[in-house]
Design a protein around this nucleic acid. Sequence first.
DNA 1: TGGCAAATAGGTCGCTCGCCCCATAGCCAG
DNA 2: CTGGCTATGGGGCGAGCGACCTATTTGCCA
Lengths: 211, 211
Amino acid sequence: MSLRIVIADDHRLLLEGLAQALGGLPDIEIVGTAEDGDQLVELVAETSPDVILVDIEMPRTTGIAALGRMEDGPPAIVVTMHADEEHKARAQAVGAVGFMSKAAPLPSLAAAIRAAAAGESLMGDDVESILDDHREPVLGEGAAALTAREKELLAMLASGVSSTEHLADQLFISQKTVKNHLASIYDKLGIADRAQAAVEAIRLGLHRSND
Amino acid sequence: MSLRIVIADDHRLLLEGLAQALGGLPDIEIVGTAEDGDQLVELVAETSPDVILVDIEMPRTTGIAALGRMEDGPPAIVVTMHADEEHKARAQAVGAVGFMSKAAPLPSLAAAIRAAAAGESLMGDDVESILDDHREPVLGEGAAALTAREKELLAMLASGVSSTEHLADQLFISQKTVKNHLASIYDKLGIADRAQAAVEAIRLGLHRSND
DNA sequence: TGGCAAATAGGTCGCTCGCCCCATAGCCAG
DNA sequence: CTGGCTATGGGGCGAGCGACCTATTTGCCA
C-alpha cells in the first residue's frame, strides 16, 4: 500500500524528525533508519524499501560510499547540506535518482519520494515541474474513493465533533444526510462506527484545511 | 496547558521535521517557526513562547546574534551541528540555558525542552541526570488522572477497536466493565463518546506500548 | 440526451451506547 | 480499621446510532 522508506543520517534530530514527519503522511511508511552507511546497506538488504533517503556526511561509511555498494538497490534520494554541483555530480555517479538540499521544504521531499518511487529522475533541469506532479499524497485503497463532502465530515470527526446533531449543524445539512454520508464512509473504508472513522481520519491525514 | 515552543533553523527539513515530531508530543505545542534570526526575534515578540530552539548558523542574523538581542526573553536551547566547547561558550554568553547537538536523539531534546521550561540550566556537567528527570511527557489536566486500565482502553480505541464486545474480549473483562471504564474516561476528559475518546487518545499520545 | 454519481432528505427497525442506580473485592493511607 | 480509590461486575432506561430502502435534485460526461 504505502511507500516503504528508509532514512540514513547521523544527525539524529533530523533523522527522527524526518521519520516522524514523513511517517505521518498517509502514503509513506518509515520501515527503518540508519546512522551510518554500513547500517544503511544492511537495513536495505533486510527491508527492501521502495525508496531510500541518504545523507552524504556520515561516520565510517559515507552515504555516497554506501550507494556505491548498492548498485541495483532501490531508488535513492541524496539529502545534504552541501547542495552544490560537485556533490550532486558525485551523487549521480553512484546512481542516486534525486538530490535535495536540507534547506528544501518538507513537502518537496515528500514529492521527491513519490516521484522516485514512480521511477522518475530528479537530476534534470525540470525538477520543479516533476515535483509539482507529485505534491498530492496518493491516498490508497478506499480513501481515494472518498468524496469531498465525506472528507469534510471525516475532518470534523478528527477534530472531535462526533454527534450527528453537531455535525449537521456545522455543515448546514440535515441529520439524515450526515448519517447517509457516514454510512458511505463506513462502506468505503471498511469500518463500522464513528470511533473507527475518527482513527482513520487522523491516520489518513484528514486534518485541518482539507480538500 | 502544553509548552509553547518556537523553532528557528534555516534547514527547513530539520525545521519542519522537528516541528512535526515535537508537536506530536502530548505536552508540546509548536507556535511558530523561523528561518533566520530576524524572523525569530519577531516571532518571539509576537507569540511569547515558553521555550525557544535555535540554530547557530542562519542567514542574515545568526542564532547567537538573535539571542543577544533578546536578553530577557524565554529560555533558549541552542541546537547545532557544531557541538564543541567554543560554540557552547558563545551560546552561554548570550544567555542560552541549553546546548544540544543535532546528533542527539529526539527524546533528549524533548527532555531538554521540559527541563528548560521548568527553569533548569543544562549548561552544567550533570546534564544527563537532569534530562532523565524530564523524560516523561507531562500529561496535563484530566489526562493525569487516568488510571492504567483507562489508558489501556484508550490505546485500544486509538488503534481502532471500538465496539464494547471487542474491547471486552481483548481485555478479558466483561462488557459491563468496559462501559464503566469508558464512563469514567468520559467524565475525566470532559467528553461524551468513543469517537471523541479516540481523538483524545491519539492527541495525548496513548498509542502503542502505553503504560 | 441519457445515464450515473453525489448531495440532499425521509422513514423504520433493532441493537448499542451512554447514563443512572447498585454491589463486591483488593489495596493503601491515615 | 475505616475511608477512599480502583477494578471488577450487574440491571434498567431512553436516546442515539447503524443498516436497509426509497426519493429528489443537481451536475457532469459520454
